[in-house]
Every structure is written in structure tokens, then in C-alpha cells.
């Protein structure tokens, strides 16, 4: 009997809202599943789509990209630029046939500790149900000696 599948979830979060929100989850002692690995950047504006591609390359089964709600960006507009980028990126990925159920974009503020826990749990459960992203893992393996 093989071990049950535990998805690998990579999260890209901004320092001022979602990272702080996740800190609040901790301060409030709200529990969530431990699959997620958080990468901290200053702003969602910094989140290059290359990072998302590399996370998939490295075998992430699910990805969370999260930052400040519109209007709340610490840098005033980084999240608006990010939003446009995601809108185009998402469509491009769909055209390529990537399974976008595995990439979740969200806004989690510094005050939303409970929401962060809920988001991580939802994404983890959803991706666990989807199973490993074998389609992508296959091509990563292909042709590399």
C-alpha cells in the first residue's frame, strides 16, 4: 500500500498583507495543513510569472499567489499591476492547456489570519483531490538525462 498522496503547495505572498496575515494566523493559533511552503517577496508586483513556472518545474502540485486587496497595496499599485499580469498569464496558461485549478490567486490582508488558514486548507484539499500534477511532472522528466 503506497503512502497517501500529500500535495506540494508553493505560495508566493507579499510581505505586507498576506505574509502578515499568515503571521496573524500563527499569533491566533489557528491550525492549517502543513503542505504549504511560503516564499516571501515585498509585493505581488514583484511576483514574476517565471517564479510560478519554476515552481511547477520543481514539482509543485498546487500554487498560491496572494497579496494585498485592491486599494490596500503597501506600494499603492503593485497589486494592480500584478492583477493585470495574472489576468493575461492565466489566459496564456489556459491556451497552453495547463490545469489552472492548481493555481490559486487571492487577496489576503494582514487582518485576515483566519482567511489564510482557510485558503491554505481549501487549496490543499482541492489539490489533494486532484492528485499529483503528473501531466507536468512527465514533461519535466522527459528528455532530461
Amino acid at each position: 500500500m503506497a503512502e497517501p498522496f500529500e500535495p506540494k503547495i508553493t505560495a508566493f505572498v507579499c510581505n505586507w498583507c498576506t505574509y502578515a496575515g499568515a503571521d496573524l494566523t500563527g499569533t491566533s493559533r489557528i491550525k492549517y495543513q502543513s503542505n504549504v511552503r511560503v516564499l516571501r517577496v515585498p509585493c505581488t508586483g514583484r511576483i514574476d510569472y517565471m517564479m510560478v513556472l519554476k515552481a511547477l518545474h520543481k514539482g509543485a502540485d498546487g500554487i498560491i499567489v496572494s497579496g494585498c486587496h485592491p486599494n490596500d497595496c503597501h506600494y499603492t499599485s503593485g497589486n494592480y499591476h500584478a492583477r493585470r499580469r495574472w489576468m493575461v498569464f492565466k489566459k496564456m496558461m489556459e491556451v497552453m492547456g495547463v490545469d489552472m485549478r492548481r493555481i490559486t490567486f487571492s487577496w489576503v490582508s494582514a487582518a485576515e489570519g483566519a482567511r489564510w488558514a482557510q485558503l491554505v486548507n481549501e487549496v490543499t484539499d482541492q489539490v489533494r483531490a486532484l492528485g499529483p500534477y503528473s501531466e507536468f511532472r512527465q514533461i519535466v522528466g522527459a528528455g532530461i538525462e
Binding site: 485592491p70 499599485s77 492583477r83 493585470r84 489576468m87 487571492s106
Partner: peptide, 11 residues
């Protein structure tokens, strides 16, 4: 950007 750029997928 526009502050009211419309999308429906960001949670």
C-alpha cells in the same frame, strides 16, 4: 492598470 480592471478568478 485601472483600479476597476475586471476579473473573476482572484479569491
Amino acid at each position: 492598470f485601472k483600479t476597476d480592471d475586471k476579473e473573476s478568478f482572484i479569491r
